[in-house]
């Protein structure tokens, strides 16, 4: 079991931030990282390759019931919701879209919040809909750390603003500060 579960949700305007973050994440990063990114429905291939180019960590689109390992980056697969279960495995689902999204950020955030409570670090980036705020609220309620990109700095502020409207988050940071915070998380908490 990992000490922390880092989960990042992003939609329109978040791709460059995620790309930069993956470039900066150190090789021996001690936590698993989960990415839930909205993408076009029929873009099924090429996305993970684009994200992988500069990443030092291995990027994986998990299969159902795959075990979770520290130091790996898991990308929610296109057209599936990604749940994290408390036996340290993934559980995928093709149920209805939420906020027109599958994967939905809310589902991964909430399931992590209930499975790993105060070990969860949830980060919500730029985006054009309201996905993620309910899930981030669950992370907050269950004792995890919540980080939201500063809406004034985000390319599209709808998604981070929606979270700030309903949660008293731990940190409001710029994209650069978020990258810095996530990549140095282990120096701060372990």
């Amino acid at each position: 079991m990992a000490n922390k579960y880092v989960v990042i949700g992003g939609s329109a305007g978040s791709f460059q931030t995620v790309l930069k973050l993956l470039e900066e994440l150190p090789k021996n990063y001690p936590y698993p990282v989960f990415l839930v990114l909205h993408r076009l429905k029929n873009v099924r291939s090429g996305f993970i390759e684009a994200l992988s180019i500069k990443s030092k960590l291995k990027l994986i689109e998990p299969a159902d019931k795959d075990p979770i390992e520290a130091g790996k980056v898991y990308l929610a697969p296109a057209n599936y919701h990604m749940y994290i279960q408390f036996d340290n495995t993934f559980s995928l689902s093709t149920e209805e879209t939420i906020n027109h999204s599958r994967p939905a950020i809310d589902i991964t955030f909430s399931s992590l919040a209930f499975s790993y409570t105060n070990k969860v670090v949830g980060v919500l980036l730029s985006g054009a809909n309201k996905d993620g705020s309910l899930g981030l609220k669950d992370i907050s309620t269950n004792g995890g750390i919540t980080v939201v990109q500063d809406p004034n700095e985000a390319q599209i502020q709808t998604m981070p603003q929606a979270a700030l409207d309903i949660i008293d988050v731990d940190k409001i940071l710029s994209a650069e500060e978020i990258i810095n915070f996530v990549t140095k998380l282990h120096l701060r908490y372990d």
Partner: peptide, 9 residues
Amino acid sequence: YSPRSFQRR
């Protein structure tokens, strides 16, 4: 059934 998704249903 998978507990997390069942719970959500």
